[in-house]
Design a protein around this nucleic acid. Structure first.
Lengths: 118, 118
DNA sequence: CCCTTAGGTTGACAGATCTCGAAGCAGGCG
DNA sequence: CGCCTGCTTCGAGATCTGTCAACCTAAGGG
């Protein structure tokens, strides 16, 4: 697996449900990167805390104390989520705020959708 | 991250959309394991090939030649998907057939669902 | 029986990942 | 200006992961 950052990352890379048609190799690399980012308990919780936060935004200062991990580690996980295109960050004065990339989440959700009208 | 196989793996471990309420730590470990399994381009393609296969089943003999990888490697990836509860296997005579665990996929899809009734 | 074919298991190795402590950068306060 | 706090980046160590070659098991055919 190469270290390169994927340049695709459009919210709607591939939306045909996985159970409907096979995912092409190029799209698979991009989509798998997002799933991999969610493939860590800490990041999944971070993602959910951010996405479900009041106002749709969460401050790092609120996220960090929720885990038994050091600041740098949380920062690292947030960076992974950022590079996967799942969240966006925004510095506001002293604190940094994170918000979820809804369209991206929706695309992933649609991909895993099975037989909506079975 | 421990090596232990999680014992939970019920299809409906946690279904409240990630954007609605934060995922509890215990559920996060289980769910993240599934996302991690999908976090590899090869496995994501395998998953889609199996889920979209005619009759809902795919033979390993059809999956392996679709990649530029050796048999053992494909076997390893299928094992990961199996242990993540995403697919089930079934030997039928000479060949082994795989089919998707639809409920599990549905649960993951629901988790990533954003603004169901926005 | 022996052999061939389909898959899975084992062992090994390069590369990636998670975690931390130390150091760096940005913004606010005295 | 000088310092403190919040967050990120850097460097390092232990662990995990993807891949292959070699080997093993199961099923079917002479």
């Amino acid at each position: 697996m190469s270290k390169q950052t994927l340049t695709v990352l459009e919210p709607d890379v591939c939306c045909a449900p996985l159970a409907t048609s096979a995912v092409p190799a190029e799209a698979a690399a991009d989509l798998a990167a997002s799933f991999k980012a969610l493939g860590d308990p800490v990041r999944l919780q971070l993602m959910s805390m951010i996405a479900s936060a009041d106002g749709g935004e969460a401050c790092v200062c609120d996220l960090t104390p929720a885990f038994d991990l050091t600041g740098p580690t949380i920062s690292h996980h947030l960076k992974v989520l950022r590079e996967a295109g799942l969240v966006e960050s925004d510095r506001r004065g002293t604190w940094v705020w994170y918000r979820a990339n809804r369209p991206r989440l929706a695309a992933l959700s649609a991909l895993l959708d099975v037989a909506p009208a079975a």
